[in-house]
Computed example of a mutant assay.
Amino acid sequence: MTVSVTRHLRAARLLGGAALVGLALSGCAGKSNITTGSVPQSARAAGEMNATELRGAAEAAGRAYEKNPKDRNIGMNYANVLRMNGRNDQALAVMQQVAIFHPKDRDVLAAYGKAQAAAGQLEQALATVLRAQTPDRPDWRLQSAEGAILDQLGRTAEARQRYRKALDLKPNEPSVLSNLGMSYLLARDLKTAETYMRSAVAQPGADSSVRQNLALTVGLQGRFQEAETIARQELTAQQAEANVAYLRSMLTQQNAWKQLAADDSKNTN
Rank of each mutant, 00 (worst) to 15 (best):
R223M: 07
V108H: 04
P174N: 08
Y163G: 04
G30H: 03
S178A: 15
R232P: 01
A93L: 07
L130S: 15
A45P: 08
G154V: 01
F101V: 01
Q121C: 11
S144Y: 01
M197Y: 15
N243Y: 00
K104D: 14
I230H: 00
L109T: 03
A159D: 03
L247Q: 06
S208F: 03
L109Y: 07
N267G: 10
P40I: 04
L180S: 08
G17F: 04
A64P: 00
A18P: 00
D71L: 01
A187E: 15
A18L: 11
T2C: 09
A261F: 09
R198L: 14
P138T: 07
D71E: 13
G154H: 05
R211V: 07
A99Q: 08
Q133T: 01
E173P: 00
L251W: 03
T192P: 04
L177S: 04
G205L: 11
D139Q: 09
Q254V: 00
V218K: 02
S144M: 08
S4K: 13
S32R: 07
Q259E: 14
A227Q: 05
A61T: 02
P138H: 01
R164C: 02
R164Q: 14
L251K: 00
Q121R: 15
S42Q: 10
W140T: 05
M182N: 12
K114H: 11
A11P: 04
A117V: 03
D107F: 08
L126S: 03
L23T: 10
V3H: 09
L92D: 04
G113M: 06
R106Y: 06
R63V: 02
N73R: 14
N33P: 13
T217K: 05
L220V: 07
G205Y: 11
Q121E: 15
K67G: 06
A215T: 04
L216V: 12
D89Y: 08
L122G: 02
D168K: 12
D151M: 11
V201A: 15
A111M: 10
R83P: 01
M95E: 08
G30T: 05
A115L: 02
E59G: 00
W140M: 12
S178V: 05
A115S: 14
A110T: 00
S183G: 15
L126K: 12
N80W: 04
L169A: 14
R232Q: 10
